[in-house]
Computed example of a mutant assay.
Amino acid sequence: MAEKVKENLYQAEYLGSGTFIITKPKRTKRKLRQLRLKSPNTGMRK
């Protein structure tokens, strides 16, 4: 892979009483395109 992976991309911060702040990286444009090509007609089935 040519992408550089930084440390601590995925983080979960506990706030108390079952509340978390979760940070994760956004999906890349390439992955989004692959997903849309694989399942093109979500939401159009009736």
Rank of each mutant, 00 (worst) to 15 (best):
S17V: 05
K38N: 12
K29A: 01
Y14C: 01
M44P: 10
F20K: 11
K29S: 03
S17T: 10
A2Q: 15
L9M: 04
S17P: 07
G43M: 10
G43R: 11
T23S: 01
Y10L: 00
M44T: 11
R36C: 09
T28Q: 06
N41K: 02
L32P: 11
M44L: 15
L35R: 14
A12N: 10
S17F: 07
L9S: 03
M44I: 13
K38W: 15
R27G: 01
E13Y: 13
A12Y: 13
L15F: 00
G18Y: 06
T19I: 09
Q34P: 10
E3A: 13
K29Y: 07
R45V: 07
I21W: 01
R30S: 03
S17K: 10
L37P: 07
K4S: 14
I21M: 00
R30K: 04
K46V: 05
R36H: 11
L15V: 00
T23L: 02
T28C: 11
G43P: 10
K4R: 14
Q34W: 12
R33S: 02
T23Q: 04
P25S: 04
R33I: 06
K4E: 15
I21N: 01
Q11N: 09
K29I: 05
F20D: 06
L15E: 00
S17C: 07
Y14F: 01
